[in-house]
Nucleic acid binder design. Structure first.
Lengths: 300, 300
DNA sequence: TCGATTGATCGCAAATGGTTATCGCCCAAG
DNA sequence: CTTGGGCGATAACCATTTGCGATCAATCGA
């Protein structure tokens, strides 16, 4: 069979059109002129032998085979870019580049230990860390935007393309102002609580719901905030308590303290997650730092 | 960070040099002139920021980071080509292209059933089938040369990048000329046997060794042959018996017949194997035909 | 020391990827 | 019903990339 003249550029272009929803929009997004898009897409369609896009008068849409192709092309492009990124050395002397996502809840010393080990093994590798919500992290892992992530283990956090492996667990404690008195567990029900917004803290809130229900605790959520910094600030201001993994105690602002709640059973587990299609030598080394990875695995 | 100007062409070139062991040899293999290789490699090295190849006076060799990079690049290139191949339609009207390897031992009706199901689901997809030894198949799966394979399950057949899933099992029977009398099991020990060459039939021969030892059968291997056709031909000529999965009975030449050996316990299991990095929508459909694939899988 | 063989270099031709300007089309707002 | 604005397609043109043949410099074995 005649070998294809399609290159990475073509995939970028097609994915751009699919995401932008139009040739002109894609041209702007990719920083090139619109006719170049037209030509690239046409060349690719000719090579593949089918139309990727349906040119409607109002907007373009994917044909059925086009949708399948774009889906595969995303993986292919992500893998390609990972390969380059993992090998590339920049001007500042680092060799290789790994992009990691982590949940705000995972901000304990455990990650640092693993990272230190990785750094010793592969010195000079640049590690880029992004704080992301669990759901965003899953999406970005699936799309290949990040290489690995540390997120909350929860039965609702799953994706066919993503593998997960528990890394550590921590009990949940009560966060309160340093100078506040220890409350009785019974008085907590009905007491004001500040919590992360359900939309962004979905899995953690679900976990807390279950643990609280089991312990007979009914926190009165009087305020919901977007991120951890604000959460702690509000607690420090006396707006209410909040629940947080005990592991994070050392990272707490000086104005706050943590109280173990023996009646609150169960714990929060952080897992490392990665797209099992995402595979470079560098990422294998990285994952190896966080527990043994399965080798040949016999499915089902 | 400045985006890389490396494309698929560069990867092909680097892999070519690594495989051919020299710039000139790679040029010939890739069908282009040698200066183009020099320039492409130099551009790539400049972009990546390190030397991929060590230019020795006699031959080129990979540097340490170069070796890692080439390893990743192979996966990346294989995935890219799979993506194109899976989508491409050729002049004869087929859409998509899947390359499958199968062991000669797997030549039963079970594969046909799955293939028929796949064809119904994805009509017009071109399926290219290669008969390969189990070891060759593992190597080609790892290298992305084939998309999936049906091979003999055996504890010595494993590779960290390859997933396997049992598809069916078959007892082992005795193959003998149609007009030969049924031998007593006891008389088989010491009787002449024709077998596949150990080199090419490694895993199957290991399996037979174990089963025979357990049954107290000591076949006298008087001849070793390279492939099945010759194997059957030799048996038909009366050179000896052979052992073969009972499932293959319908595929046997008319001059041969099969005899169940109740004393020979255990069976041969055929597994579907695939590189878990190899992932296109088309391949997922294919694998789905041969049993449920694991979804989100929790490592360890 | 002399080929033979290796990768590097040079200059030129072709292919590729991109540009601007413009077209024809369809829909929606006037 | 017209018309303006937005869409992708097309045309003509330009810069860069890619590949070529010819040639060079270095090395190694005979």
């Amino acid at each position: 069979m005649r070998q294809s003249r399609i290159g990475i550029r073509h995939l970028r272009c097609a994915i751009g059109v699919a995401d932008a929803g139009g040739f002109r929009a894609a041209a702007e997004m990719l920083g090139i002129a619109q006719p170049a898009i037209t030509k690239t897409i046409r060349d690719m369609e000719e090579d593949l032998g089918f139309e990727i896009f349906e040119r409607g008068p109002k907007a373009v849409s994917l044909t059925a085979p086009g949708r399948r192709f774009i889906e595969d092309a995303r993986q292919s492009l992500a893998q390609f870019e990972r390969t380059i990124r993992a090998a590339r050395r920049n001007e500042t002397g680092s060799h290789g580049h790994v992009i990691i996502g982590y949940s705000a809840l995972a901000s304990s010393g455990h990650i640092s230990d693993g990272l230190r080990g990785f750094e010793a093994l592969c010195p000079g590798v640049q590690i880029e860390m992004h704080v992301l919500s669990t759901d965003t992290m899953m999406r970005q892992l699936a799309g290949g935007e990040i290489d690995a992530g540390f997120l909350l283990s929860h039965e609702t956090v799953a994706h066919p393309a993503i593998s997960q492996q528990p890394v550590w667990s921590s009990p949940i404690g009560l966060v309160l102002p340093r100078d506040a008195p220890d409350p009785d567990f019974e008085t907590l029900s009905g007491a004001p609580f500040v919590m992360g917004l359900r939309e962004n803290w979905r899995a953690y809130r679900l976990l807390l719901d279950r643990l609280c229900a089991e312990a007979g605790l009914v926190p009165q959520v009087t305020e919901e905030v977007w991120d951890v910094q604000v959460l702690f600030q509000r607690v420090a201001e006396g707006r209410g308590y909040t629940l947080y993994p005990m592991d994070a105690a050392p990272a707490l602002p000086a104005s706050l303290r943590m109280l173990a709640l023996s009646r609150l059973r169960g714990s929060l587990t952080i897992s490392m997650a990665w797209n099992h299609v995402a595979d470079t030598a560098l990422l294998r080394s990285f994952r190896a730092q966080f527990g043994r990875e399965e080798t040949a695995h016999m499915a089902r």
